[in-house]
Nucleic acid binder design. Structure first.
Lengths: 345, 345
DNA sequence: CTGAAAGCGCTAACAG
DNA sequence: CTGTTAGCGCTTTCAG
């Protein structure tokens, strides 16, 4: 049989109408048992599969969702994608990858794809909405969009996230508990709510322990390796360098550790380091990285579940869904060096 | 304007036919200049976007490709995805993610998606074709499929890959050059051509240097952290443990290093380790991992470029495209310990 | 250069 | 329970 078979072919071959075939192939039992099995068998023999666009055009459902991130190359998104994919797939949805690279044009483009029927819904992980609000206005009142991880102020979209502030505070308290008093923080880009949240947690934990945050103890960062390196270098160059560093993500923690070592200090002997994310293979690092674990797969799963709910008529949760984090205490944290042996010795 | 505008709306509003609108919005200059701009402006004002399914149904092109991997959660695929995405996007194609997890049903499913018009082409990175050949038979004679990275025997599909054997041999030669003579290999799953290739390279380099591969020096592995750990443990337990280990991928190299350290040896002082892949952040590892770098982004770019060629009528390269690898010599390799100080001392 | 008309393959009224 | 009919929104002959 050349050229994929269509419903019409099956109908003709079996002497029924195409409507009957369509119904027989669907869920309900709107078709009498004998014909139904005949039709299904014929379909299987012919290796029939409904044409995707024809069906979508008719039903107005693409059976696809769009997962939009800032950088597909970032390992952070992997497990989230995994959770999204598994949940989507179980519900019969395909997953389209969107990558914005912070390009406003692309950000808009993906919203367009929603409107033009490429996808039925979107999971947004870029931390912002297109500046060009025309796109948003063109969407229906309750667009099938779920925001994951990153707060978008006043977006009104349902979202799933973690409590960055609480998690960061817990990480810093761990360091304080070990006896550290000079604890520095490598921030993420501070315009972003996520970075601010983690910094707020750092500040809160310091304040609650009566510890000062000396000038230079809050280093700017970009969530990248090099930013971590720069911050590490700057911190060790201070007159009173910290004995512990809390980095806003694992990648910067790696960078900081790298630099600390390059300058002849040891981790955690001279300087303790805590990260945030618990990347794949962070446990394989040496020493294994102490870090805040985010339930990434579950974030993906939850976001997709929320989206599915919305797509089937639900409104989605009215308040943010907050998932639990857990501090993974591993090998990069230890009590501070004895007072006589400052790391800058 | 409620409800997305369609061509008909624009046509009515401007007093032209919908055919004219369609043409004006297309590429060619089949429409007189004045009307053409009028139409385009109207479209922009209305925020018009053609309906994806309607267009696909008519043109028989989904403008989407499918990238199928065995495990979306594996960081290895990240940069490849990045290359695919960038190239696809530039050509106006969306990227659908496929994840098989080695499930034969899913493998088949993605081929179906090709046939039913969900996607126009596929980049296959699973290393195998569905066992159920019926699916394949149903495809056109030259299906728009490109195989990346993994050999599929006799598939006949164009493919892009690296020379696993040569790259592995180069890695082992590096160890030999440092003076190592007792070099072990942690294999990937040996049924896979990729794993066999790397093992073949290991054997070839050993043979060419006149070095023996004692029993137990070829450890089975699974490309996962734990497999690396197990292999590392087994190797150090040998009567004559190796002074160097070549792992078939970075992840197992990490596992092996982890275990070597747990047993009180140092890397590279007592044991040198070489990986394969050069994962994101492998340079941030401590010590930075010596490994074989694969041009992952380029692999993705190349595969997608080949696919685009096929989709526009080309036949694709008749012979495999082989991209270059490069050994990254970093911190986990060093000359072997002096004879008196065997690692099992 | 533009319009009229057909039709991609499917599903959903509406009848019977 | 099944058939007839219409139409989703677009592109593309075919005429003019």
């Amino acid at each position: 049989m050349n050229g994929r078979p269509k419903i019409k072919d099956i109908a003709a071959m079996l002497g029924v109408s195409s409507a009957t075939v369509s119904r027989a192939l669907g869920d309900g039992d709107l078709v009498a048992e004998p014909t139904r099995t005949r039709i299904r068998e014929a379909a299987r023999t012919l290796n029939y599969r409904p044409n995707a666009s024809a069906r979508s055009l008719r039903t107005r459902r693409a059976m696809a969702v769009l997962m939009v991130v800032r950088d597909v190359g970032n390992p952070f998104y992997l497990d989230i994608l995994k959770g999204v994919e598994a949940t989507a797939r179980a519900a019969g949805y395909a997953v389209l990858m969107g990558n914005t690279e912070n390009d406003p044009d692309r950000e808009v483009e993906y919203f367009h794809m929603l409107r033009d029927g490429h996808a039925d819904g979107m999971i947004l992980m870029t931390g912002k909405l297109p500046a060009d609000t025309a796109v948003l206005d063109a969407l229906p009142e309750a667009p099938p969009v779920v925001v994951a991880l990153e707060m978008i102020a006043d977006s009104g979209f349902p979202h799933v996230q973690i409590d960055n502030e609480a998690a960061a505070a817990a990480a810093v308290r761990h360091l304080i508990g070990l006896g550290h008093r000079r604890i520095a923080h490598v921030c993420g880009p501070v315009p972003e709510p996520m970075s601010r949240g983690r910094r707020a947690g750092y500040r809160a934990a310091m304040a609650e322990a009566g510890l000062a945050v000396p000038p230079g103890y809050e280093q700017p960062g970009d969530y990248l390796l090099d930013g971590g390196r720069r911050a590490g270098r700057a911190l060790l160059a201070l007159d009173e360098p910290p004995t512990a560093i809390f980095a806003a993500n694992d990648e910067m923690a790696y960078g900081a550790i790298h630099e600390v070592r390059r300058l002849g200090r040891e981790v955690p002997r001279d300087v303790s380091v805590v990260g945030f994310d618990d990347l794949y293979l962070s446990e394989a690092f040496y020493p294994p990285l102490t870090t805040v674990r985010q339930p990434r797969t579950e974030i993906g799963r939850t976001a997709m579940t929320m989206l599915l709910d919305i797509l089937s008529g639900g409104r989605g949760p009215r308040r943010p869904v907050v998932l639990d984090t857990a501090l993974q205490v591993r090998g990069t944290t230890a009590p501070p060096p004895p007072a006589g042996r400052r790391p800058h010795a």
